[in-house]
Design a protein around this nucleic acid. Structure first.
Lengths: 80, 80
DNA sequence: ATAATATTTAGATATTTGTCTAAATATATA
DNA sequence: TATATATTTAGACAAATATCTAAATATTAT
């Protein structure tokens, strides 16, 4: 749970989550949405992944990221 | 919303929230629950207050802290 | 095979954050 | 008023974090 709050404690990562609510996206497409270098976005994706908030799947040379809605539910029910 | 996630991104502050779910407490009583100096706890309380997660009321020489359940609800419905 | 594209890893750096001690402020009590 | 208790403020410092550039890895296409 610690990892989840840590992951959510960043505007960029919260925006990534919002993007993935609409549709799955690959790392490059996500990076294009920000004025931040690709390595930095990759780092954010890693933190989201470690928190289990997203999952990734290699598709050819791309890596597609998907929101893990199950874990988001867990946060939303935190404390009940 | 930024302030709220920031406030929740700390184990001590989350434990303070849990304590205040049970009952209102003054700063000293809260500090006793942790192996952390009072000034540090005061700092945590300040962060929780800025996030509107708790409120405080001076009662004599004590300062009583109360959980703001309304704002907690906001977090829990984040993203809907 | 070589070159191009997509992504991650490594290492460096500036900023933020949690903690402490010492001092300041506020209230209660003798 | 003087002293004790409760809390916060101020300033310092170490650890964590977000960012960058350069390099490494993986896949596709020529």
């Amino acid at each position: 749970m610690n990892e989840i709050f840590k992951a959510l404690n960043d505007e960029t990562r919260r925006r990534i989550i919002e993007l993935l609510k609409d549709k799955d996206m690959n790392a490059g497409a996500i990076a294009e949405e920000f004025n931040i270098s690709k390595p930095s976005i990759s780092h954010h994706l890693d933190i989201l992944k470690r928190a289990d908030l997203i999952t990734s799947e290699k598709k050819g040379q791309f890596v597609e990221y998907t929101l893990n809605t199950t874990i988001l539910e867990e946060v939303l029910t935190y404390g009940y």
